[in-house]
Amino acid sequence: MRIKALWLLLSLPLVAAMPSGREVMERVVNKATWKDMTADVLMRISARGRERIRKIKMFSRKRTAEENDTLMRFTYPPDVAGTAFLLIEHSKGEDERYLYLPALRRIRRIASSGKGGAFMGSDFSYYDIGKPKLGDWKYRNLGMVELNGRKVYKVEALPANKKVEKETKYGKIIHYVDPQKWSVVRAEYYDRMGKLWKVLEVRSFKEIKGIWFQTDLVMNNIQSGSQSEMKFENLKVDQGLSPSLFTKRSLRR
């Protein structure tokens, strides 16, 4: 009897401490992280019974805590095979982006003002795949719900200001976060009129060194009926990639 009471007492703070929406998303975004990463990425876009496939070999490293270098080599389809894209992030000032076109054997630095919009013509926007800026959103934990037999947090995100709303074109996002993995397992994106627009489903994960990586993301565009999938294969982390990989010279291979 006494033991039971004690147990109750001990577990009480745990129950009471339902994390806030912001706390949940912080844990998702700032999971213990990696130094470098490689993967084979498959991007599949399908609409009206047709599909387009792109295959990319991806290399990425953390140059500093805030800045990543990323090299993407396209391997499929054949007409763009060999094109390579290098992104060097700068937390202060503009990111550097270089593209190598093997057909012209030329490297060009490309500068682009407006980001946002669709990522490579897919249903993912640059915002969907980038690291979310927590300050851009007002989060609210709507509590635990059950999703595919698992208890997950349902977190509502509202744009913190008009600018975010205009740039992302979202009026609301609902994230479903698995507290075991601290990863988003599903997200619903609503347009600015509050109508459901896109639904993200994460179909598979891979655990490396205690970190759960999303390895199969499917975005369904409810309004247009199209679907995009991003699949990560041969995901490896911390292999000690050489910094020389992330230079203009290596674009030509």
Binding site: T83, L104, G114, A118, M120
Partner: peptide
């Protein structure tokens, strides 16, 4: 050097996709 025009076109379009919004 010689190269097929279709490859150039494909890669030019790729360039635009990577540098801006293909929309």
């Amino acid at each position: 050097f010689k190269v097929e025009g279709e490859k150039i076109v494909a890669q030019l379009l790729q360039l635009y996709e990577m540098s801006s919004s293909p929309e």
